[in-house]
Structures are given as C-alpha cells and as structure tokens.
Nucleic acid binder design. Structure first.
Length: 198
DNA sequence: TCGTAGATTTTCT
DNA sequence: GAAAATCTACGAC
C-alpha cells in the first residue's frame, strides 16, 4: 500500500520542490481500484516574478485563489477540454506552484486505459502530457482545493530516481523573457516524458 | 513519421 | 468577446 507523504514536504522552495517531485508517486484511490503513477516531469511556476504564471501581477481570483493558499493544496485548471494538475508550494500569500506534466503508470494500468477511452496504441500515450495524465488518473475539477497529503488523492514517497535534467518550459509561447527560464524538470532518458519540439 | 490546424469550456476584461 | 500551462486528427513525404 501507499501512504500520503508528510505535509512538511510541500514547504520547500518551489524550484526545489519541483525537482524533488520527480520520482514520487501520485496515488488515486478510486472506486474502481488503486491508480498510481511515478512522476517523471514537472514545471515550476514562480508567481509574482513569473510572467507565465496565472498569478503574475494579479490578485487572487476565483481561478487562482488556491495558489495563494496553503502549501500542498491541489490546483486544478481547465484548459479547452483538458484538466491540468498543480501542487501549490510555499506559504499562504505566496502564489508558487508546480505543474505535473507527465508520469509513468505503476498501478491500475487497465483502469487508466478505460479512463482514456478510445484506442491508445502506445502505453506512453496514456500519461505523457498534463491533460492525459489527469484524465488517466480520473482527476477532475472536483479536486480543486483538495490537499495532496490526504486520501483519496495524494503524493507518496517514491523510489530513488535517475538523473534529473532541466530545460525551458513548454507551451507558454507569449510570456516574454520567462520562456527561457529552465524551470522544467524531467527524468533523463525516461520514455514517458512528453516529447515536445523546441 | 512529421508538421499544422481546429476543438471547446472556464474565467477574465 | 477573447484567450488559455493542450490534445488529436489528418494530410504530405
């Protein structure tokens, strides 16, 4: 079985937290069974200093207010038809967060395929992107404001990880200089890391 | 196999 | 009314 990680884990600075999350597990105890993935890719969003973040030079709004809240909160964001999952970092009043971009299935593989529906050819296609990952795990907007240290959806301690590399972030084209910040973290040579062109 | 265009829902101006 | 931290389908080579 898996156990939620200690809440103090989320107190780390956001860049360190994004690095530490690579190799951890995301566990979802769904009615259909246990679902778990090993995190292989994350991105850090650095609130006030980060033009790409939703919280950049903005006051809390309905969409972003959880980012200003307690460390360890779940920030789900809906884009087009997809849901993206974030881990809130830092103390209240500081809008830092880590986007979970990709994972490697370790439990409930068949259930994930059902959640994704359709005809997925490659296993990697189940969880190699933010929207795919949340759909495979059955995570929706109803988890907005949930805490990552509590069941049924939580972060669990992982195995020793391989080398972690960094690169510029992805999918934030119109964000000025912030585009070049190397705040994307991923496990080296892991086939489940999303493959974006530069 | 690679590159490009369109989808579709919530939130903000 | 417009934009958004993306995914998928489809056409070309």
């Amino acid at each position: 079985m898996y156990e939620p990680i200690d809440p103090s884990f989320f107190q780390e600075p956001v860049l360190q937290l994004a690095h530490s999350l690579v190799g951890k597990y995301i566990v979802h105890e769904s009615p259909e069974g246990l679902l778990a993935v090993r995190i292989v890719e994350t991105e850090a969003y650095h609130g006030p200093e980060d033009r790409a973040a939703h919280s950049f030079s903005n006051r809390p709004t309905k969409r972003t207010e959880v980012m200003f809240g307690e460390a360890g909160s779940v920030y789900t964001y809906q884009m087009h038809t997809h849901v993206l999952m974030n881990v809130v970092a830092a103390a209240e009043g500081t809008p830092h967060a880590v986007l979970l971009r990709a994972g490697e299935p370790v439990e409930g593989l068949e259930q994930m395929q059902e959640n994704r529906g359709s005809h997925i050819k490659k296993i990697a296609d189940l969880t190699n992107g933010p929207g795919k990952l949340s759909k495979a795990l059955g995570v929706t907007m109803k988890y907005y404001g949930h805490n990552w240290a509590e069941k049924p959806l939580y972060i669990a301690e992982g195995l020793a990880m391989n080398e972690v590399e960094t690169s510029p972030r992805v999918g934030i084209g119109n964000s000025g200089e912030a585009v070049h910040y190397p705040w994307r973290f991923y496990e080296k040579d892991n086939p489940f890391v999303s493959k974006y062109r530069k």
